[in-house]
């Protein structure tokens, strides 16, 4: 009975994190981006610095009519937002937050193969955008879908290679094990892997500067063109949840997770702080860099990131064997 209650409580906590953390990242995007562009961002909703802006957005989305275009492939079109969103919830189950006041590790479910579980879940999420592109019956969506597929195939390899390098160094595929095995000098030895992982993750989430599939100046909104109301909101939520999952994975793999002063008690706070920092970098990248052209996107993956990731794996092999 106690075990069942424990599992239920953990699931509820993960669900709570899934419903709040992406909104916090979204609000951070509103405000941080605004200040970087010499604006103030939302100020009215909720009173204090527009803190309730995303809640207001959510209420607006709920009220909108749900429209399915006549030319759309109905079931594929309607299923796509769920396929995009749910995998990130599943991925969050396996990401550890670290020791919680000496009460053991704060994690949904400690998996033997957590790293592969999260990577597999992330790769399913992109299928949702692809389904949206295929099923909308709109040529802009279709071109966007092709770009999604090309981008996904290019960036999957460097991402997995970079993650494999850390797993090799730690000698385990368990995310808790990797974070426990982490040592500060890995920041230097795994730096190329960190860069490759972060950049490939940005591309996998189709975040700027890798948003060629959405490219509002060329393709209206790419695969999301025909979506409105709740379905569009689900795609938006999936994007922010994706940022949280990417930031969490980067933190646990490359930044030592809960490593920091008093980590036995405050480990979870360190992890959350690092996740917030990485999320901020994701937002900063959007403001700082212009969108890459479609051929540049693929050239970067195959000519820079894959060789860099292979070099990182070689370096790790030498370090581990030596």
């Amino acid at each position: 009975m106690g075990e069942l209650l424990d599992a239920l409580l953990r699931c509820l906590l993960v669900l709570g994190a899934f419903l709040t953390l992406p909104l916090l990242v979204g609000q951070m995007e509103h405000k941080a981006m605004a200040h970087m562009q010499s604006r103030v961002g939302p100020m009215a909703a909720g009173g204090f610095h527009g803190w309730a802006q995303l809640v207001a957005d959510g209420i607006k989305f709920v009220q909108k009519e749900s429209i399915t275009p006549v030319a759309a492939d109905r079931r594929v079109f309607e299923l796509a937002p769920a396929v995009a969103l749910v995998p990130y919830l599943v991925a969050m189950l396996a990401i550890p937050l670290g020791p919680f006041f000496g009460q053991g590790n704060l994690i949904g479910q400690d998996l033997d193969l957590g790293l592969f579980f999260v990577l597999a879940a992330m790769s399913v999420g992109v299928l949702g955008t692809l389904m949206g592109g295929l099923g909308s019956g709109n040529k802009y969506s279709y071109i966007g879908g092709m770009r999604v597929a090309a981008q996904l195939m290019s960036y999957e390899l460097p991402m997995v290679l970079a993650a494999a390098s850390v797993a090799m160094a730690a000698g385990t595929l368990s995310l808790i094990g990797i974070a426990d095995a982490w040592e500060p000098w890995w920041l230097l030895a795994q730096l190329p892997g960190l860069i490759v992982f972060f950049v490939a993750g940005l591309a996998e989430l189709q975040r700027p500067p890798f948003d060629a599939p959405l490219a509002d100046a060329e393709l209206v909104m790419g695969p999301l063109t025909e979506y409105g109301g709740m379905r569009f909101a689900m795609f938006l939520l999936a994007e922010y949840a994706g940022i949280v999952v990417l930031a969490g994975l980067t933190t646990v793999l490359f930044l030592g997770g809960w490593a920091g002063p008093w980590s036995d008690h405050l480990g979870w706070a360190w992890t959350l702080l690092k996740i917030a920092g990485v999320s901020f970098l994701v937002i900063w990248a959007r403001v700082a860099y212009p969108r890459l052209r479609e051929d540049q996107v693929n050239a970067l993956a195959w000519k820079v990131l894959v060789p860099l990731a292979l070099a990182q794996v070689t370096l790790t092999t030498v370090l581990v064997v030596w």
Partner: peptide, 30 residues
């Protein structure tokens, strides 16, 4: 478990995407 997650990562995440990509490149409509 290892085979299962690799199956999802490689087949669902890459091979099916490759199939769909080839489909989109060779045929004009969905």
């Amino acid at each position: 478990e290892f085979v299962a997650w690799v199956q999802v990562l490689v087949y669902v995440g890459s091979v099916v995407v490759l199939v769909i990509f080839a489909l989109m490149l060779t045929r004009q409509t969905s």
